[in-house]
Design a protein around this nucleic acid. Structure first.
Length: 290
DNA sequence: CAAGCGTGGCT
DNA sequence: TAGCCAAGCTT
């Protein structure tokens, strides 16, 4: 019998072929889910897995992390990238300790109120950790919906409309809906990829609007990333790495970014990191936030 | 709403 | 090789 909905095709495919990932294990905690979702924001799965293990061993509960200095969170974020996430995760842990009795909230609005949590992460926690029924929409899901339902090669800019479109595809039961959410993300990551989709392996191919239209090249509205070499981001990364490597010892201003060619950019790096709260200073030395 | 924010693997 | 890209969020 042919599948009549996206879920009819995707959920069985997911049950059959989902990868074995730590956060999909039966007894994975809500805190573990929250930490993994922070780490997975713009960082590939393969780089997250080893560090996630380190973090959860060190800080098994939100209160464990909240009780530690923010500097330790930033230090142990290591080279995951976007270190503001480490700071935000620490702040979220403090909020959970102080306002939620040390228990990761289940309510989407409560989750949205935590630092560093937006539409995606809030619903991911509510759905994957607590089994509630909400649409979970990440960049993979947006691409799957764009192709399978809208017939375009790329999704448009992220929009609240995406949540409503995914909501309409969810099965009635919360458990099946959770599988559907995970399945759409999984398909986008391993089959319906951005550059070279493997349509020959796709469980949704026979109902895909984009394939039916002849897989046309449609406009890609995503903004291109600025070059990293010589960028402000690279300068910030160098500063933070120097402080991580020395932590908890402070580092003199003159010992950081010594050979950086652009003095103005060097100043900008320190100032923006201070503004972000990722570094602090005392006289002419810098250190990670206490 | 567009811009800014890290890092490393893959093509 | 050099660019492209990755489970987003905040301002």
């Amino acid at each position: 019998m042919p599948a009549h909905s996206l879920a009819d095709a995707l959920v069985p495919w997911y049950r059959r072929s989902a990868r074995d990932l730590p956060w999909r294990h039966e007894n994975f905690s809500a805190w573990g889910t929250l930490v993994s979702e922070f780490m997975l924001q713009q960082t590939p799965v393969a780089r997250v897995i080893p560090l996630l293990e380190t973090w959860l061993k060190r800080w098994p509960t939100p209160t464990d992390l909240a009780d530690a200095p923010a500097a330790e969170a930033v230090t142990h974020w290591a080279n995951l990238g976007y270190p503001r996430r480490a700071l935000w995760l620490h702040r979220a842990a403090v909020q959970i300790r102080d306002h939620h009795g040390g228990v990761v909230p289940r309510d989407v609005d409560d989750l949205l109120a935590l630092t560093g949590i937006g539409d995606y992460t809030a619903r991911a926690v509510a759905v994957f950790a607590y089994g509630d029924r909400h649409p979970v929409v990440d960049t993979n899901t947006r691409r799957v919906l764009a192709r399978a339902l809208n017939g375009t090669a790329h999704p448009g800019p992220a929009h609240r409309r995406d949540l409503e479109q995914m909501e309409a595809e969810l099965p009635e039961s919360a458990a099946e809906a959770a599988l559907m959410n995970a399945a759409a993300m999984e398909l986008g990551q391993v089959v319906c990829t951005a550059r070279s989709p493997r349509c020959g392996e796709c469980p949704v191919r026979d109902m895909c609007a984009w394939v039916a239209a002849g897989s046309p090249a449609t406009p890609d509205t995503r903004k291109k990333q600025a070059a990293y070499e010589g960028s402000d981001r690279q300068a910030r990364g160098r500063v933070l790495r120097a402080l991580r490597d020395a932590a908890p010892e402070p580092v003199p201003h003159d010992a950081i970014l010594i050979d950086w060619p652009d003095a103005g950019q060097r100043d900008r790096a320190f100032l923006s990191l201070l503004a972000d709260g990722l570094i602090e200073s005392d006289g002419d030395v810098f250190f990670l936030p206490r």
